[in-house]
Design a protein around this nucleic acid. Structure first.
Lengths: 330, 330
DNA sequence: GCCGGCAATGTTTACGTAAACATGGGTGCC
DNA sequence: GGCACCCATGTTTACGTAAACATTGCCGGC
């Protein structure tokens, strides 16, 4: 900056004023400074600015994996909305979901240059007292039940699951089977709970639960088991990947979807419309989740207050070709 | 830091020594300082450190979208390897692939606190002279032909495509049709070029090219066209998503895969093994691409030198059930 | 017993920036 | 015509940290 000032024949302060777009610099002077900047390839030092301002204009995102559609699409939305607000995203990957790794990530977080943190991961691991969030860092959590302690943004899992169940019951199915996600996932638990609740409310039998780890392969295995259940005419699968596996299992064993069995997924990933058959599924609005996360984070940064409470983003049932009335109505 | 020093009854410098793990602090003193730190909830200020050290220990990643499997998995690998090296990732999203947006991202980049940048996007847009990379920022580009000017890391697209073609020819197919990605994608161009080259070398007819935008829907449309080609017995599709669409088109029109037509994809996304039928595809090693990007970026940061040249990461053909010999051998 | 040396800790300074305050010259108003 | 005011610009200072240098005190060797 000093070099630019010297070359332009002004003081460093004037250079600063130009580079921050401050008013009150006469056009001729501004032009001189800009020329000098270009000539010397000057770029302001982010660290010095952050030091001066006392804020980093950065949001940290703690996540365990980007392999799931939901996580990466949420991250993308977060990055986009943060950028609009002039903020930048710093990634804090947690390589494995073990307690020390999570602790480690949060310890590192303490040294990181972030104003707020958005946590996208199974949050059971946050429960233990060993995790100490650094003071002065605001937190927003995606998909958690820690709403009393933190600011939480989540998809309305329960409503989504109910939409799926009611759609299938309305078609005339007597009950709905469920392939759930892993028990350590809040989203999976919520969907399973809503599935059970919806069936009970409708006075239907609640069939035994199958579980998978979200992967298509796990869905395939669950599907092979469901093929053996003669009265299984409708399945609600906790995500689209597993639904893909379920479809394959049924196809392989000669059960036609939707003629013999109806299948509903969850997420509405980009490929869901190209499954065989195109999958009826519950659409999650990841972009909206990301937007609300950023909003909540920045609101906390601005006010300095810590918010708690849960925000739910609505879901929408997308009807395609994997659901139909059961074969023999009664 | 001053408060901690006061509480511990030492100088600020001693606090600094403790917090950086410097040797030469007697255990008793160290313990006092640590206690004071905990008591006051002290955390070092990243901006001040960066200012002092003259480096940010941060790598910026410029990308256009996280919606593609490749991008998000590459990003994840980059974040993981960077974390191992004590570096952190900052995301610089480019909301749309128009020239101004790209320019804008690179302008912002100039003000960002990063030591190096990894660019993951269609790089045709980098060609125009309007994009000026800030001096002193080292660059690594994924998937580009700008190897003479920049440091480029890429999957060995050509080898992957050849593996696919040779596999199909070896099975006895007379030629191989191709559903390519969009022309603005280097990866798509490379795969298409290698496809054409491999057929020519083998003395086979080169059928007309179909193009899609990487989406399953585009693959479906291309598939419907290929159904009409009576001598189409083998298709090489430029990515797995489009392959999914091609499979659906064939299935819908009663063409059995692999009995009537063989299909090979590219990427080996997690779901490929659960397609109907499970997809034979070319596996890209995104983790390795990410690792090499980080390595190259950090090497440039350390040495201060700008590297050029292209590094190719090998591919592997994963055989599943979507390929078989053509129906009537001759 | 005195001095050299070394280990532990303290003091000074600089990193690059922008807010706060200071200065000077011109302009409008009475 | 003189005074007050304001606009453009310059000067000083502080943000939090760690390197470089300074100081203190202790120990061992002669």
């Amino acid at each position: 900056m000093a070099d630019v000032a010297r070359l332009a024949g002004v003081s460093a302060q004037t250079v600063s004023r130009v580079s921050t777009g401050h008013p009150g610099v006469v056009p001729a002077t501004r032009e001189q400074v800009l020329t000098a900047m270009r000539q010397l390839g000057y770029r302001p030092n982010g660290a010095a600015r952050a030091l001066k301002y006392g804020e980093f204009r950065t949001i940290g995102v703690v996540l365990f994996t980007l392999a799931t559609t939901g996580n990466s699409r949420t991250l993308e939305a977060i990055a986009t909305y943060a950028a609009e607000a002039g903020y930048v995203i710093t990634l804090i990957p947690v390589t494995s979901p073990t307690q020390d790794r999570v602790d480690g990530a949060f310890t590192r977080l303490g040294e990181l240059a972030v104003d707020a943190v958005i946590v996208i991961m199974e949050v059971h691991l946050l429960d233990t007292a060993t995790v100490v969030l650094p003071p002065g860092v605001h937190v927003v959590i995606v998909d958690s039940d820690a709403g009393e302690r933190y600011c939480v943004v989540d998809t309305d899992q329960a409503h989504g699951a109910r939409q799926a169940i009611h759609h299938l019951l309305d078609l005339g199915h007597r009950t709905v089977w469920h392939v759930a996600g892993p028990p350590e996932s809040f989203a999976a638990e919520r969907r399973a709970l809503a599935w059970r609740g919806a069936l009970r409310e409708a006075g239907r039998r609640v069939p035994p639960l199958r579980r998978g780890d979200w992967s298509a392969e796990a869905g395939y295995r669950a599907g092979l088991e469901l093929v053996e259940e003669p009265d299984c005419t409708a399945v609600f699968v906790a995500n689209d990947q597993m639904a893909l596996g379920v479809l394959r299992a049924f196809h392989q064993r000669g059960r036609s979807v939707p003629r013999d069995v109806s299948v509903v997924g969850f997420d509405d990933i980009a490929e869901a419309g190209s499954f065989i058959p195109p999958l009826t599924t519950v659409r999650q609005d990841f972009a909206e989740v990301g937007r609300r996360c950023v909003e909540a984070a920045l609101r906390q940064v601005r006010t300095g207050a810590t918010e708690t409470g849960t925000t739910l983003v609505p879901t929408r049932l997308v009807l395609r070709d994997s659901t139909a009335p059961p074969r023999q109505q009664r």
